[in-house]
Nucleic acid binder design. Structure first.
Lengths: 138, 138
DNA sequence: TCCGTATTTTCCGTATCGGTTAAATAACCT
DNA sequence: AGGTTATTTAACCGATACGGAAAATACGGA
């Protein structure tokens, strides 16, 4: 059984120890020993957590002698953010304001084009609500 | 056994069925039966998924006769986004550009302030830092 | 009141998770 | 080679997660 990437990523994030590890890594690349220090937990436990994080695409690991330095990997974070974007309108005020602005601009542009094609004026906001779902920003 | 809210939320999101339910709810409030339809799964199973989502703060439920309409709840989403914000710089290009701009503005402001030798007014630019979550991205 | 629809609860089997200890592997240093 | 340090694997254990089936609950209506 192999869960989809997004599920593995969310599952990986659903553990405070792992999130703490990521927080530490946000400060910069470091070793397993170093990462383990703050926790009252065996080294193998940490090792497993790192494996989970790596498999989830949240970190990547290099090799330097006997150390395997860990660092944040962008991929999974980006995916999570992308997924979350589908729901942003439910809580982000400025998102809504901005979205309104974009729609306005779009409508204006459309008005210009149709004005050139045929001198008939169009009502402004029509494209709005459904459009925002698939948006990736930009 | 009371995991922190963020852990419950991520755990709730780590299931494709539950994410599909949320996607459906993004289209609008609806009943359990309605939500269950697309899935090859028993009704009790869906009911349990909804319980998890509710407990995670991702949905809320009303009462209308024998129906319990579900809808997206902003709280948990906001928390997730907030947490994710700590890592945004690792993958969001425009975030970095904007961040640079803010630093610049901050420096400029600081310069002005010290020129006037007025030690007050500390956080003018600080607020903007929070604002950028709704940013345009280009 | 009894009926039908909507939803939840209870109980159960199986799988996975997060942790432990002990042993294994890997790479450096004499 | 032998020793030290860093990290992983293996075997095991208790707790929890996900699914199903059957029964319980909640509500509206004839």
């Amino acid at each position: 059984m192999q869960p989809d990437p997004l599920s593995s990523t969310f599952a990986a994030l659903a553990d405070p120890t792992r999130r703490a590890i990521l927080a530490r890594l946000a400060l910069g690349e470091t070793s397993v020993m170093e990462l383990a220090k703050p926790f009252d937990m065996s080294l193998p436990a940490i090792s497993k957590h790192l494996k989970v994080l790596e498999h989830a695409g949240l970190i990547s690991r290099g090799r330097e002698a006997q150390w395997r330095p860990c660092r944040i990997a962008p991929v999974a974070f980006r995916e999570v953010d992308g997924w979350l974007g589908n729901f942003r309108r439910f809580w982000d005020e400025s998102f809504n304001r901005l979205d309104g602005l974009l729609e306005e601009m779009k409508a204006e542009e459309a008005a210009k084009v149709t004005a050139k094609a045929s001198p008939r004026k169009k009502s402004k906001v029509r494209v709005t609500k459904e459009k925002q779902r698939g948006r990736t920003r930009g």
